[in-house]
């Protein structure tokens, strides 16, 4: 009974993950500029991969530790890397989508430190 319940829960988790992975792919195709695409490619795929690995761990009970370790590592590193890419692209002057309404960095004259400037 418990086995069947956990197995079907795992299947549901895998389907949620696949759905969010599909949304991420769709977003990368459809969204206009780098920051939007980065959001689609990071947020939805993070949830997708985490849900998929947890589902697999629930279906095959021996892999639950590996799946949990994978999920934790992904949750830790994926936002950091996406943050680094977004910051680097803003610094490098990648043009934003013209409809971007509040560009807070520009509004507050938030300036990234120039060459040789100390903290």
């Amino acid at each position: 009974m418990l086995d069947a319940f956990l197995g079907w829960t795992g299947v549901v988790f895998v389907f949620i993950g696949v759905f969010f992975l599909f949304l991420g792919a769709l977003g990368i195709l459809r969204l206009p500029d780098l920051l939007n695409r980065l959001q689609a490619g990071t947020k939805s795929t993070t949830l997708g991969v985490v849900a998929t690995s947890i589902g697999v761990g629930l279906i095959v009970r021996g892999w639950i530790l590996f799946a949990a370790a994978l999920a934790v590592f992904l949750l830790m590193t994926n936002p950091i890397s996406s943050h680094a890419i977004a910051r680097a692209s803003y610094r490098a002057g990648v043009k934003l989508y013209p409809g971007t309404h509040p560009d807070k960095c520009e509004e507050r004259k938030w300036k990234l430190p120039e060459d040789g400037e100390e903290k």
Binding site: F73, M76, T77, I80, H83, A84, R87, A88, R91, L112, P113, D115, G116, E117, E118, K119
Partner: peptide, 21 residues
């Protein structure tokens, strides 16, 4: 070291945590 681009706080903390793993 002449700092060209200052690494943000998220990067410096995150890489240190990730380094352990």
């Amino acid at each position: 070291n002449i700092i060209k681009a200052q690494a943000s706080l998220i990067m410096s903390v995150g890489t240190r945590i990730a380094y352990a793993v």
